[in-house]
Design a protein around this nucleic acid. Structure first.
Lengths: 231, 231
DNA sequence: CGTAGTTTTTAGTCATGGCTAAATTGTATC
DNA sequence: GATACAATTTAGCCATGACTAAAAACTACG
């Protein structure tokens, strides 16, 4: 009743199961191998616990587990992960747009709510937002049937100086980082003029809403932009 | 961070703990003695499980437990119960008003969401609704500091025939009942004319929005009304 | 006031899913 | 290929909170 996973899943999944699947999905999309240690570090449990849980998920046909190999999601596992991710990102946008929750807080709120969202509520939220495509950080929202689009753009740190860009995505959920960026006026879809790019991965100089700021290289690497003309 | 219970509570409470406390609170307000069997029946676990949990809640100073006696909430326990109830009722109203979730569905949705609502979100929701006093069923919403008002009104089944009333509260959360009432046009604050009251606790004849309906006595007993003039 | 019947509690089991510590496997280097 | 180091898995422990079955305690009635 509250969940609508692709294939029928024998036992109901706990928040925990869902968190593991989501973690595996995210690590997979990073392109890295989803090793046991990467997974356990990401979810914040010991490697032993991760092995344990991965084995259980494998029994449920949600992941493929071969000892000493990288974990991989099965199609069903991916569907579950994407459904949770859809919940998460819809919630982030909803909280931000409808309840004015600041963009640096929506992540942690959604982190808890995503597991208790019914289909009906998911639909109602999606409808009330006009079936949005991205969340407040520019992350794409998976569709109901588990499709997810690839967001265009490239890091600001790898962009040509002397041009204007539009911020389309921020690859971080860290509250402090997001709060900082927000203070600089760097919200989604804002126009950024790249004044200068220091060599050897140095800081960048940007102009946002008439103000000039220096940005550390690692920060600039998290900012995905497209040319401002591409509106 | 997500919770703000009156006194500091040593260990964090699970949904389960909260459900027990809420159940005890509700049974207490019904005026009945909160016996172990009443509690276990209400929460849907065996009596043995209830005893077990009540003992644990007693260790946390949330309830008073004396073997073979009725359970009672401590002041702290009551605060927790009221906070959850506040979450629940705010959520019900929010879901109904903001997302158009039908009034017969909001209860079950809120039942899951109430446990993962942060203070910040609770505040944002309350503010967005204009600090409401009652939920879509007319149940009073406890204030942030744990005060709860007593809703006026009396059962329609005990009202004088030939008069007009206003529906101020429905004492049921059952989906089917609420759906049925909704079909008759019996939503909150609707005006009801009581045509006839059959003797010996018989059915009542009411007129709602120009239509006449017969209502079973047990149904009429759940409808709390005030004289329509008292607007 | 004793006995029957109900309610409550106790005792003991099970599944879950974390943990630590130890064993194992895999990898890389000499 | 042996040996060292890192990653992974196994084994075994613990807390939680459900359960059943049995014991104990209350209540009420003859």
């Amino acid at each position: 009743m509250t969940k609508n996973y692709a294939s029928e899943i024998s036992s109901p999944l706990s928040s925990n199961h869902e968190d593991y699947l989501k973690a595996i999905y995210i690590l997979e999309t990073r392109g890295e191998q989803v090793t046991n240690s990467a997974l356990s570090e990401y979810i914040g449990f010991t490697p032993a616990s991760a092995t344990n849980m991965v084995k259980k998920l494998a029994q449920m046909d949600l992941v493929i587990y071969r000892p000493h190999q990288a974990v991989a999601l099965t199609p069903t596992g991916r569907r579950v992960a994407l459904e949770i991710l859809r919940h998460h990102r819809l919630l982030e946008l909803f909280l931000h747009q409808t309840l004015d929750i600041p963009w640096d807080s929506v992540h942690e709120e959604a982190e808890r709510l995503e597991h208790v969202l019914s289909e009906a509520l998911e639909d109602a939220i999606a409808a009330s937002l006009g079936y949005p495509k991205v969340d407040p950080h520019g992350d794409p929202i998976p569709s109901k049937n588990g499709e997810i689009s690839h967001t265009p753009g490239h890091p600001l740190s790898q962009s040509e100086a002397g041009r204007a860009y539009r911020l389309v995505r921020v690859l971080s959920q860290e509250k402090e980082r997001l709060a900082y960026l927000g203070e600089l006026g760097l919200q989604l879809n804002v126009e950024v003029f790249l004044r200068e790019q220091a060599p050897f991965d140095g800081p960048v100089l940007v102009e946002v809403a008439g103000e000039e700021h220096a940005l550390a290289a690692d920060m600039a690497a998290l900012l995905q932009v497209v040319p401002a003309s591409a509106e």
